[in-house]
Design a protein around this nucleic acid. Sequence first.
DNA 1: CTGAAAGCGCTTACAG
DNA 2: CTGAAAGCGCTTACAG
Lengths: 341, 341
Amino acid sequence: MSSINIKDIAKLAGVGVSTVSRVINNHPDVKKETRVKIQDIIEKNNYIPNNSARNLKMLASNNIGIIVKGSFNPFFSKIVERIERSISNENYLLTLHYNSSCEKDDSEILIEQIKEKRLNGVIYLGGNFDNKSNNYLKLLNIPLVIASANISDDVDKSGFSSVGIDNIDSAFKAVDYLCKMGHKNIGLLSSGFSDSNNRNLRTFGYEKALLKNGISINIDYYRDGYYTFESGYEMAKDLLNKNSEITAIFSTSDIIAVGAAKYILSTNRQIPNDVSIIGFDGLEYGEFFHPSISTVAQPIEEIADNAVELLFRQINDMESLNEHIKLKTNLIIRDSIASVN
Amino acid sequence: MSSINIKDIAKLAGVGVSTVSRVINNHPDVKKETRVKIQDIIEKNNYIPNNSARNLKMLASNNIGIIVKGSFNPFFSKIVERIERSISNENYLLTLHYNSSCEKDDSEILIEQIKEKRLNGVIYLGGNFDNKSNNYLKLLNIPLVIASANISDDVDKSGFSSVGIDNIDSAFKAVDYLCKMGHKNIGLLSSGFSDSNNRNLRTFGYEKALLKNGISINIDYYRDGYYTFESGYEMAKDLLNKNSEITAIFSTSDIIAVGAAKYILSTNRQIPNDVSIIGFDGLEYGEFFHPSISTVAQPIEEIADNAVELLFRQINDMESLNEHIKLKTNLIIRDSIASVN
DNA sequence: CTGAAAGCGCTTACAG
DNA sequence: CTGAAAGCGCTTACAG
C-alpha cells in the first residue's frame, strides 16, 4: 500500500497541507474555490486519510467505544444496535470491538482501545468484573458504563456507572410463577461456569422461590451446561431421564430452554401438558418456537438507553456522580406453562 | 487520558527509547538485566503502547482483517469463529470490523482499515460487490478474499480471490426434491432486496427446478421479506391465506423458514402433513425447531478454510493466481417434508 | 548491547 | 483565507 498521502494531495492542488487538512475536516475557513478544487483532487485520486495519524494527533475524537464480551450473543447484538442508533444521533462515532474469549484480559483491551482511538467514553457489554479488572479500571479516568455484566460484590464501584437487572428477583418471579401453578418438582438448567455470576444469582432466585413456596431444594434437579441449543437438549435429556417426576423446568437462558423443549417434544411428551418450561432473556427464539416458550424478558431497549444516558452524563460533566441502575425484567407468559392438578 | 508514554518509561529506566521499544517488541538484542528492569517499570506503571503510533510507523503488521457486512448474522459468526482459529495458528492477528448497513460504502471501509492497521490481507464476508466497488478494489493491491458475498457478473475478478456456493444449483436441488415428493404448488419466501443477488440466483434455481419437473411458474407464489422470524411468519400468513392450494414452501433462509413454520403450526395445520417446508443455510434454528426443518446447508467450515487458504497463498506469494471457488452445499432432509399423493 | 535522530501522516496553533 | 513548522508516540536504520 504505497498510497497517496496528504502531502501529495497538497502538491497536486498547489496548496499547503494545512489547507487540505481543513477541507478533509470540514473546517469553515477555506475559500470555496480552493475547497472544491481540493475535494476534486481527493476524489480523483481516491485519497483516504490515514486514521492512525489522525488519532495520534487528535486529543479527543468524538468516538465512543463499545466492547462486547462473548462474541456472538444475539442478546448483545440487540443492545448494540440500539446504542448505535442513539450514539449517532448525538453526532458521536462508534467503535465496536468484539473480543472472543481467547483474547487477552478484558480491561487491557479497553485501555488499548482508549489510547488508540482517543475514545471519549466506553460502554462495556457483558463479561465479568472482579477486583483485578478493577485495578485497571481505576487508571482509566474516562467515562465508562458497564452494562449487562457480572460485577463481583467486592468491586469498588466508584470508578464507573453500570446498568443491569436484578437477577435474583427475576429468577424468583419466574419460579414463583411455576410454583403458583402447582409445580413442585422443578428442574434448573443453567449456562454454567462461563457465566458464573449470573448463574449463581439466578440459582439463588430459584431457590428463594422454592423456599417461599415450601418446596425443599433438590440438588438432583440442577444441571450446568453451555449457552447452546444442543446443551439445553442434552441437559433436559439427562434431567428428565433421571427424574421423571419433574413437571417444570426453569432455564437461565432462552437458547437452553429451546433446546430443552426440543428434547421434550422429540420424546413425544407434550409442552406444557407433560412438562412446563420457562426461559430467560426474551429473545425471539422462544417466541417462534412452537409452542411459544415463556420467558423472563430483559428490558433490552432500556438497558441500551440507560447505558447511553449514563455515559453522556459523564462525558458532559466529568464530576457527575456514578450511578448503578438495576432495571426490572418482564415475565412473559406464553404457551409453555400449564397448571398441575 | 494524559497517560504515560515510551519516553517516560525510558526516563524512569534510565535508558533510551529505542531500548524500551526493543523490549516491547521482543527484539533479542537487549541485555537480560536491562530487559527485566524495563519490563518491571512497564508493569508497575501500567504502560500500554499507543497503537496508532505503532501502526503509523510500521509497514506491515501481521494483521489480517475480516470485514463482516450485515452485522449480526449467525451464519457469518460461525465463519468468523472458524477463521479466527486458523489465523491465530499462523501467528497472525485478527482485526474484526462489523459494519452495520447504515455506514459508508463497503470498499471505503476496507481501504481505511488497510491503511490504519497496516493489514497484510483482508477477508471480506458478505455484502454486495458491483463494478463501482471494484474500482476501489483495483487500487488495493493487497491480498483480498471475498467470501459468501454477492459478486455481480460484470465485475472484473482479477483483483481478488473468492469463495462461495452455487446458489442456483443449491436452490434447484431443494426445490427439485420437493417436486420429486409430488409437490406442484410450491411457495417461495425470500429475504428480499437487501440480499438481491442471492435472492435472484436462488429464485432462478427454484424456477429451473419447477420447469424441469414440468410445473409452470406462478408469480402469486413469490414473497419478498426480510431476514427475520417475524417476516417469515408474515409472509407465510399472506401466502397461505391467498393460495390455500400450496403444499410446500421453499425459503431462502432458515430464519424465514422457522418463522413460516411457526405460522403454519399456529393455525393448526401440520408440518409436514399439511405443508412441507425447506430452508437454506443450515443453521441450528431449523434443527431445533419442532419438527426439525429441512435445509440446504452451506459448508461453513469449508468456506472459512478455503478463504484462509486462498488468502495465505497470496500473502506468501503476491504473484500467485487468484482463484474463485464455488463450494457444494448439502441437502439435509429432516422432518419437515412429506410426499404428496 | 545501546542511544540519538529521522520520519511515519496527520492536526493545530501561529503568523501572516 | 492560507502556509510553514512543531509535534502526536512510536520504530528503525545507523553509529557506536
